[in-house]
Design a protein around this nucleic acid. Structure first.
Lengths: 385, 385
DNA sequence: TGCGTTTGTATTATACAAATACAAATTTGC
DNA sequence: GCAAATTTGTATTTGTATAATACAAACGCA
């Protein structure tokens, strides 16, 4: 098990991780970065070329002095593909991305009239991979897997509970695998985790790979990334920050949880009846502040700041990124929130940068696919015990 | 860098991790456990014998059938020693432990009259390692380092803030290294992290290596262990759960934080004037419940349950362990707390086992030392990038 | 006592990276 | 122009891992 081939794999993965920044490099560049010999890198690259994960650009590095210029290699966008399927109560968002995170195919399937029927939704899900592969015309053999993102508590391949879908204890992976009639590996993850993965993969700077992502919607979910990997709880749970009790008289009637105080219920009265909620919330961004809207925003700022304060004290994230339909409103309160944080954080803590994720409705689907992509950059599993 | 020696190290460490349970095993046993050949284990053990981390027991395994019985090897208690120094506002607790976690020497130095003077405290700290080595009569060359535990926010070798000591931004490591005039490596950690490390090292069962430790004292600190390692925040912080806002009118006046609602202030009126607080609290365990004490306990149960509820939703720990002087009181409210949790956790979460750490006042010192010991079981640093 | 079984190690085979050497490709200096 | 210097990439050799194999030693069992 812990054999020489582990070394080979480690070095190959390390080369991939260097190339991941999407800057083409020569073998000598990589060797310097990893403190190994050029010969070793040459071997690893040879292997990666054979696996099609890397391509020779047939191009020379720009010269910076004397000597033979290096031959550039880079990640091969065409080397691996990944499918992400995001379930919400309105629709399934489906994407197929390539190894450089470009979206090669995209489908949206409305499920508003049947989201509460797992069997029917899974039937629709199961048809999508084949469809995406056909649309995108990629080689089916290079598709590395399918990852489903769902708004709920996910554990061991099952959706334990997804209140917005009204699902409980659905064994999605088995059902999907059966329905798909293909050997594609199927994974499943929480939607906040998926979006966090999209944010992390998108971050060109590696320092963004340490992120607390908060998904502000009807509920509030979260995912915590450390060194690009999701920090999971002991049972694969965690991140249910929406249920954090933050106020009220002592007691746990759950009328003062983070998601009740800072979810979007507060803003529904300001949205016109017939407008979908995300669009309605987006309109509020530029809406002039009536006193009642201002009051709602102030209360929201206070609730957000309190929630952030708790999470920063507990988790110490490097950055906070906000996603979900409510996130667009954040710039209207950012100053208030950040002032409150600065005043209330204990000495030693600084206010982390708080930003809004730049992803549309397909963010979670892209992120789910990115989660699969990430596994190619994983060092060999720690030979535990 | 990523060479064959990494493999050798990995296999040696894997052997150590198997032996860590303190059950002597034969090379063949270890080989089966690790899925490597007996010859490979033989080599690793040969190396570990040379490093004195393992000893040959000159004893045969009890036979379970035919065949030559294996020659048992086990961790060598005498192979490595570790020193832990815990600072509180009352005293310095100092211990020297061996490789099997036995306390070989112990010293307590009162600093009640000068805890607020970092220079004088560090002077006292610096004298202790030599003293402990002399008391215990262990070979000085086998002492692997010193780890200091402090009640405050620790980062990059500095105490950023330790309110109970009234210290701010003290560069403990430099000062210690200078004052000690020895080549011993000095580390520093938070006291909750130290105690958690003691709990994890103490746990004979490996499933206890996933622990959320809460230190219930004047303040409330925490440390989160996952797979035996402390989960640290991006800046080495985190775990300041005492500052979690849990109630009150919207606003952050910080009158309803976890440590105000659940710290030991509430119980001070029940303690006789001249009794030290830890002893006073211990007396309350058996004190018959006056109505006012019962009320305080009920309020405490509610506050604890609310804090635990939030932390379970956010972190999903496998077990919760309580330490600090207030922990002894927990059995008086455990039933109430666990019922409240069961009623309020969202579907999918279960109430984790909640127990009281079985460590005395030297728990943090032992834990600090155990943190150093732990590093011998670390797999080689992931060759990052 | 002899046979089967398991252990531990010695030997050999194989696989990996490092060290070395060298040809190829380019700049620099004259 | 042209040789020297420099850098790249790879082939070869060397050293050191583990795996595979073989075998002697130590034991139970009949």
């Amino acid at each position: 098990m812990t054999t020489n081939s582990v070394l080979r794999h480690m070095n190959a993965v390390r080369c991939l991780r260097v190339l991941r920044r999407d800057v083409p490099l020569s073998r000598a560049d990589i060797a310097r970065e990893l403190s190994v010999t050029r010969a070793t890198v040459g071997n690893s690259i040879k292997q990666l070329l054979a696996e099609k994960l890397v391509i020779d650009l047939n191009e020379s590095a720009e010269v910076n002095g004397a000597g033979r210029p290096g031959a550039l290699v880079s990640l091969n966008p065409d080397g691996a593909y990944f499918i992400g399927l995001d379930i919400s109560s309105a629709e399934i968002n489906a994407v197929l991305i390539d190894f450089s995170m470009r979206v090669m195919a995209k489908r949206i399937v409305s499920i508003a009239d049947r989201y509460h029927e797992p069997a029917r939704v899974i039937e629709l899900l199961a048809a999508l991979p084949k469809e995406l592969i056909e649309i995108s015309k990629v080689r089916a053999s290079r598709v590395r897997g399918v990852c489903i993102s769902a708004p709920g508590i996910v554990r061991e391949g099952r959706i334990i509970s997804a209140p917005w879908l009204n699902w409980r204890d659905v064994d999605v992976i088995s059902a999907m695998s059966d329905a798909m009639r293909s050997s594609l590996k199927v994974h499943i993850c929480n939607d906040a985790v998926a979006l966090a993965s999209a944010v992390a993969a998108d971050a060109s700077e590696s320092d963004l790979s340490d992120v607390l992502l908060l998904l502000l919607a009807q509920g509030i979910g979260s995912a915590h990334l450390r060194q690009g990997r999701v920090v999971e709880g002991a049972h694969g749970l965690g991140g249910e920050v929406g249920h954090m009790v933050m106020g009220g008289q002592p007691g746990m009637a759950a009328t003062h949880t983070f998601e009740i105080l800072a979810g979007y219920q507060k803003f529904l009265p300001f949205i016109e009846q017939h407008v979908p909620i995300p669009e309605g919330l987006a309109k509020l961004v530029t809406l002039d502040g009536s006193p009642s809207l201002e009051k709602a925003l102030s209360e929201w700022a206070l609730a957000l700041a309190t929630g952030f304060l708790n999470l920063i004290h507990i988790l110490d994230p490097k950055t906070i990124v906000l996603g979900g339909p409510l996130a667009v409103l954040y710039p209207r309160v950012s100053e208030r929130v950040e002032n409150l944080l600065a005043e209330n954080l204990v000495h030693g803590f600084a206010v982390p940068p708080i930003s809004v994720a730049r992803f549309g409705g397909d963010g979670a689907a892209i992120g789910a696919a990115a989660l699969l992509r990430e596994s190619l950059f994983d060092l060999p599993e720690l030979p535990a015990i």
